[in-house]
Design a protein around this nucleic acid. Sequence first.
DNA 1: GGTTGTCATGTTAGCGCCAACATCGGTGGC
DNA 2: GCCACCGATGTTGGCGCTAACATGACAACC
Lengths: 349, 349
Amino acid sequence: MAQDGRRKPAAAGRTRAPSMADVAALAGVSAQTVSRVANHRTNVDEATRERVVNAMRMLGYRPNTAARALATGRFRTIGVISFDLQAYGNARTLESIVSAVQDTDYSVNIVTIKDQTEQAVREAFERLTTQAVDGIILNEAQILDTPALRLPSGLPVVVNDGDGTHRHAAVHTDQAEGARLAVRHLLDLGHRTVHHLAGPQDSHPARGRAEAWHRTLKDAGCPVPPVVYGDWTAESGYRAGRELAARPDAGAVFAGNDQMALGLIRALHDAGREVPGDVSVVGFDNVAESGYFLPPLTTVHQDFEEIGRQAVALLLDQIHTGRPPEAAVTSVAPRLVVRGSTAPPAPGA
Amino acid sequence: MAQDGRRKPAAAGRTRAPSMADVAALAGVSAQTVSRVANHRTNVDEATRERVVNAMRMLGYRPNTAARALATGRFRTIGVISFDLQAYGNARTLESIVSAVQDTDYSVNIVTIKDQTEQAVREAFERLTTQAVDGIILNEAQILDTPALRLPSGLPVVVNDGDGTHRHAAVHTDQAEGARLAVRHLLDLGHRTVHHLAGPQDSHPARGRAEAWHRTLKDAGCPVPPVVYGDWTAESGYRAGRELAARPDAGAVFAGNDQMALGLIRALHDAGREVPGDVSVVGFDNVAESGYFLPPLTTVHQDFEEIGRQAVALLLDQIHTGRPPEAAVTSVAPRLVVRGSTAPPAPGA
DNA sequence: GGTTGTCATGTTAGCGCCAACATCGGTGGC
DNA sequence: GCCACCGATGTTGGCGCTAACATGACAACC
């Protein structure tokens, strides 16, 4: 035996966890065979495997991931960098990423960024690369806009809401299609044009929606009113709503997300303009509560589950094949959910 | 030199990251000195430290956490187990935990549980203990209700929304105080009694709120109407609202959270009962949008930031001191936010 | 019956880091 | 002037695991 039985306790109060050597001794095999069983290798005799499995169970053996990572150079961990989890989409995407990763033997390390400063972004990356991950999912493409950000080369990266203009694999809701659905719905109801309450200008999805809104109006030969900007919050929607309420020509509004739509509706209501009687409103996201707004919100549903699943699949594929990142964009289709916040324009309008 | 220069590449396309030995060679010191610098030990000559730091920077050195964990037996990682991140409180708490942890040199590993089955909970624990964490934050005390759940002994644990009835440190919003504030507010407005739309019966916070609601009514000598149960979702609030709308005596309702309050208000509205004209409604959580509901929601604000901070502080303290978990409960005060969904009862009522 | 192959299993040598001890030059006390 | 001490630095060994190679037993093939 290489080691004697004497050990220091791993930490106060805790006794050392059983190691492969312990299992091996109990099962009467070598540590390597235990390793093979732990890693589900096929080249182990069935009887031996059973002995080892029993020994593992008896000792309550759990492989030490640090040791495994050190030996293999892989951490079986993926890192997620996200902004604000109060934003519905971010929280939902994170959840679906975690859930997809849990179906594998990887785990998820999460880092959040409060302010979009170069400093904060750089720190987040350092944290993750130090904390040892095999790949990173950026929950918001915007992060890549950070000037002079040098991603660790060779580390697989997948970008959510990416537009494929960088050298990473990207997954996104088809923003253009979503915006088109929203605008067309309003035009089809008979509205002369559609106003747009957009998300912040530095957000990729916000830009995508605004551009598609613009294009759809153009294509339909409609006048294009000036864009009003918000910051995704209900509060900013409320502020924008006060502006829009002052414009008598604003009979239909496409809001960049449901939260802003909520604030918008409240502002219109406060200004004495009925939704959908005087103004029709369409949101984006289909948050769980939007069906219970007053009036229930017509909105564009995003399939966050699918986005998370796809992002994880793309990342793991890169990790396993070692292929250099492909800048391909995976698009997930949105769908329009028509509820009570949209109606044909008032006869007088 | 112990090793020659030949190495296998760590992974396809990636070259081996610089190690302590590389830094040591460049700086002309031993690896141990590099280690001391990396760990901010004080017993290093200032000039030496500078040489080492420069060498680190030149090579882009990042310590390998797996190796460090293997050597020290600590992972500098904490695990978080959470349910459904669509629930506002869970997402917010997670965010504040992550943010608090980021101020330290720890990282966060997250596991979510979809169904509250023994199987799922056990798996979550196995995952985390395998994935190697120094401590665990349970984002929901309910998890501990799992029969026959054996937590790995000696592993520090902090429970959110815990009630101190188990042997772990717990952090929670003072549910009793929150519920009391809500109920007293309604009684003070002149309502004869207050109905309660509670969260699911297996949820600890839901139970805490329901009990305090009951007690407050009793103490005030008010009749105690039967509880209506929801599952935290707006949809369940809507269903409950249809029930409550049928009871002419329901002039004031305390909802277990804001989402259910939203569904409730919608149901009341659909039934022709005005809020707050006919029925007053108070929520719980103060979600970011609640100020923009129609009417703006009176609700009990929970300080999720503080809860996350406290949970992390308690956990790290346990980890560092190695003290056995104390079953002390840290209480975070809620506060009432009065908005437009509450008013004195209608004169006729 | 030797050659070749195949399969289960064992042996060896680190992965990169840190704890513990060793070393060495200087400093101060008497 | 000798010894005790201290602070900066180096050396050794091993954390638990796996990759790569080694071994040995047996089967298949001409």
